[in-house]
Amino acid sequence: MSRQNIAPEKITKPIQLLGAWLVGLFSVNSTFLFAAVNIAEPAWIPGSLVVAAIVNVPVFLVAVFILQTKFRPELQEDSYYAEYISQKTNELIRVSASPHSTQELLSKIEVLEARLAGLVSSNGEESISEFNGLLFGVNLHLKDRDRIKTVLSEHGVLKVTKFGDPDNEPADRVMSISQYLSAEKVRKLVILAGKLGMDGYRLFDNHMEETEEDVLIGSYGGVQFEVI
């Protein structure tokens, strides 16, 4: 006869307890029938064991039926049962969280905090975090090139290149912005152009011109729009 092993520490849910009861019923009835076959004297014992095994089944089924109907809420997991009690009694029920769910909640909180940190700077103003994905080019002829790079760094810019013709200085301080950027990014770049002291800005097709930079500060094109 095969032996059913039940690890009590692994039974953490009511539905698992029900399964353990089924295994218990099978084990008890198997024991009764095995004993009935192997016990000859006194004569009344085998019959009693067989009757007990037979009666066990309907008694167990009735008990399971009652549990699944009248006491069904009590068979739910702790979190669902706590919600049921809270709705039934209108009282606040606290359920201790498992280490796994607590760690998952902390991870989600950390992700939200990281997103908020990218949206709001330390002084409470909106951070232009989307500049991180843009490539800026700064003309080598600009006298305040170092200051411009410092301002770009303060606004989260991570990639800057140097461009320009060594023998040809730009006539005006113009920022060229890729026409493929979103309207919101263009708006913020125009604000940035004002902070950098640009005379104006223009939109250009960096794909057609095969320019890897998304923004050119000190470009050679003329002013298309003035900075207000």
Rank of each mutant, 00 (worst) to 15 (best):
N123E: 12
V138K: 00
I109K: 09
A114R: 14
E110F: 04
L142N: 03
E126S: 11
A114F: 04
F136G: 01
L105Y: 13
L106Y: 06
G137E: 03
E126W: 11
N132D: 02
G118Y: 07
H141C: 05
T102W: 14
E126H: 09
K108F: 02
E113F: 00
K143C: 01
Q103G: 07
V120P: 00
L134E: 02
S121K: 01
V120C: 13
E125C: 13
L134C: 00
A117T: 15
Q103S: 15
K108S: 03
V111P: 03
A114G: 11
Q103R: 13
E113D: 10
L106I: 10
I128K: 12
G124W: 09
L112I: 09
N132E: 08
L134H: 04
N132I: 11
S121T: 14
K108D: 08
E104K: 06
I128C: 12
E130I: 05
N123H: 08
L106Q: 06
A114S: 14
L119H: 15
V138W: 03
K143N: 15
N132V: 13
Q103C: 06
E130W: 07
H141P: 08
K143W: 11
L135G: 04
F136C: 00
G133L: 00
S122D: 15
K108E: 09
S107K: 08
